[in-house]
Design a protein around this nucleic acid. Structure first.
Lengths: 125, 125
DNA sequence: GGGATTGGTGGATGATTGTCAAACCATCCC
DNA sequence: GGGATGGTTTGACAATCATCCACCAATCCC
């Protein structure tokens, strides 16, 4: 499960705060973060996340930025990639940051802004 | 004191999380944030902040970005500008965020040479 | 194998952005 | 008035970035 192949990502100690903030300082990536906040693994399919207006490659680009910043991890399983939040790593490196962000974000990054959020693709499944 | 003229800034309710994160997703502005974390008012002089390598207009630009994002407030007194953190506003809008940032930042945005707290400026000069 | 599915790569392009330089403006002080 | 001081504005320029498009790569299923 969790020991599949993973796309390259920075080790926990190398996660840089400014890089993380830069990654999250974009409405699309903030929207992705909110989706990943449920702790579940998500496919790369942006449908249902209110990002239908974006090209697939654009979403792919944003997910890469999040991963390279250390925000997410991507597990490769067959032709699917399962993206999830590196919550433990982020909490260890920046205690309280993620909680504060997730508590504050919905007010500023309302789903209505980007579209209707139908929820996680793989959440709970 | 605090009712001098102030440069334009967004009202508290309009401070947007993504905009704030975008503003802080830059090493120079993160450095400024750390300087302002002492709660004091600071002149626009970047000397002593480890930003000596930057042109003054560049620093001015970064301070404008911070102010327009709602991170700082600027009081105009004579020919001086006194910049300070909008800590109460930020805490009200994003509880815990600033604390988490300031607790985490020094690890990532360490400044090599700054040994003097010459950043804080007494208004009575 | 052949086709469908899932997702990424690379190029192109327009928009932001970080930076410097020089000019400018307001204020203080002699 | 005339400098000197503190800071902003404007313009220019290179770098980064977000986005789209067309094509590609790996995998699953029949």
């Amino acid at each position: 499960m969790t020991d599949d192949e993973r796309l390259p990502q920075p080790p926990t100690a190398d996660i840089d705060l400014v890089t993380v903030l830069h990654a999250l300082g974009d409405p699309v990536r903030m929207r992705l973060l909110l989706s990943y906040a449920d702790g579940a693994e998500h496919s790369c399919d942006p449908r249902g996340l209110g990002l239908d207006h974006l090209h697939k490659s654009t979403v792919s680009h944003h997910m890469r930025v999040l991963r390279e910043a250390g925000v997410t991890t991507t597990r490769v399983a067959g032709r699917n990639r399962f993206v999830s939040l590196r919550r433990a790593d982020l909490d260890a490196r920046f205690p309280g940051l993620l909680d504060a962000l997730l508590a504050s974000a919905p007010q500023s990054a309302a789903v209505a802004d980007v579209g209707a959020g139908a929820g996680a693709v793989a959440a709970g499944a």
